[in-house]
């Protein structure tokens, strides 16, 4: 007969839970996306607000010119996804901290999820279905590379 096993002091009382630890991956996501967003958003702000005439230069022609190139399409789509999920997960943290009732937590988190999902889909569709030279628009509103209509 074997002697009973005595566990070492302070050994974990219960085994690690099985399955994916979503809270851990959320925690990691906030840090990884945060670093990427620092680069993407600082670049976005520099190009849009500090070059040329800054905020005054922004019109359809300016944005159309940027979104006509794959570089800025992917830059903006990366920002869109990373920022909305980062922000949505941050808002989820606040709901967990401050909403005291199960129902209000569920409604608030549902609203956050819906807003994030709708805007990610909308923004991605806009970036990739965008036409910088829509037919029938006045030429002076369009990017300079558009063929004169």
């Amino acid at each position: 007969m074997t002697a009973p096993v005595i566990e070492a002091p302070r050994s974990p009382a219960r085994p690690a839970r099985k399955g994916v630890n979503w809270e851990k991956w959320g925690w990691i996501y906030m840090r990884v996306s945060g670093v990427l967003l620092l680069v993407l958003i600082f670049g976005h702000l520099f190009v849009n607000l500090l070059t040329g005439d800054g905020v005054d230069q922004i019109d359809f022609g300016f944005v159309g010119g940027k979104l006509a190139t794959p570089f800025w399409q992917w830059w903006d789509v990366a920002m869109l996804w990373l920022a909305l999920i980062h922000g949505g997960n941050g808002m989820r943290t606040l709901v967990n901290d401050y909403a005291t009732h199960r129902t209000s937590r569920r409604i608030l988190k549902g609203a956050i999820f819906a807003a994030v999902a709708v805007l990610i889909i909308l923004g991605t569709l806009v970036v990739f279905t965008f036409d910088p030279c829509p037919a029938g628009s006045p030429a002076d509103l369009l990017p300079s590379f558009c063929p004169a209509s």
């Binding site: 019109d59 359809f60 922000g87 606040l94 807003a115 909308l122 569709l125 829509p134 509103l141 369009l142």
Partner: peptide
Amino acid sequence: GVAIFFFLLVHVLDTALVRVSPEAYN
């Protein structure tokens, strides 16, 4: 963080107007 999140919601919507028309976006 909360302030930036709510701005982001509006900012995606206003930028989405480039898909509507140059006049609407401007």
